[in-house]
Design a protein around this nucleic acid. Structure first.
Lengths: 147, 147
DNA sequence: TGGCTGACTTCTGTTTACCTAAGTCAGAGT
DNA sequence: ACTCTGACTTAGGTAAACAGAAGTCAGCCA
């Protein structure tokens, strides 16, 4: 009954832990144990989310080997996973503005070149900056007309 | 154990139905019955999400009256709710690129002035466009150092 | 060959997120 | 007073999303 791409996206990253795992992957986490500790979830949940995100094509399981260690596997973002970055930064931006606790965020995303905090802006495919009020919603087939 | 604003955001809009209700609100839905039908959830779930989002300050319950009808209530986006638009458009953009089915999305967000599809771009507070690879993650207090 | 370790899996139990179906309730119109 | 309607609430059940503890397994090293 998914009637828009938003719903399709949520079908892929529908749970709290899925988004948090993806956030950690975007922030640079690669190894299973690190996902468990940094996301703050149990091992079964971490294993399930990593498997699902890998199956959905957002993560890739690639072998690596540290010197003097056996071959292991780590999880790397694919292009599809990297394209999810705007969603994470949008959440980060919104949460920083409206839901920050007293201590402030322990993680900050900044522009490498200038050090300013990173967020997102609404923009159209033609390159214009778009104010939230200038967005038109066009109903397509199969949807009840907005009254 | 929320260690970043992303987690704080997800605490507010943590469920599939919460994001879909918020999407509908952003797309212009106001009335209870419309939320139920357009989101495709049951009435109890819709009532619970609307109540939670109202309590969290993203929606506001305001009275209205159509001629010849009794006073009723509708749900309007607050400034906090409107600020969530980039998250929804980021999800829309990602889903349109990676998860579109054969029929295409029944709803499209476009720039009113030029008609082009609306999405989001990563940008820093200094106003620069930022490529995904140019984002630096700075660990703050309380977080294990990324290996 | 046996220990060690990171990466899982299995088991058991709880909570949360839904569903459908059937109420309740307020108040404008008759 | 009575009906009608949109907006919910209540009841009862199911499935998914978790948690914690305790396994299993692979393979490098000794």
């Amino acid at each position: 009954m998914a009637n828009c791409s938003v719903a399709a996206s949520i079908d892929v990253v529908g749970t709290r832990s899925a988004i948090l795992v993806l956030r950690e992957a975007i922030f640079g986490t690669r190894r299973f144990e690190d996902f468990v500790h940094r996301v703050g979830i149990g091992e079964p949940a971490a294993a399930a989310r990593l498997k699902e995100l890998t199956a959905a094509g957002l993560l890739e399981r690639v072998p690596y080997q540290e010197p003097g260690q056996r071959t292991r596997h780590e999880y790397q973002l694919t292009a599809k996973g990297m394209d999810f970055q705007p969603v994470v930064y949008a959440l980060l931006q919104w949460g920083s503005k409206w839901e920050t606790d007293e201590a402030g965020p322990p993680l900050r995303a900044t522009h490498r070149a200038c050090g300013a905090a990173v967020g997102v802006r609404i923009r159209c495919d033609a390159g214009h900056d778009v104010d939230p009020g200038d967005v038109a919603i066009e109903p397509g087939p199969g949807l009840i007309t907005v009254s």
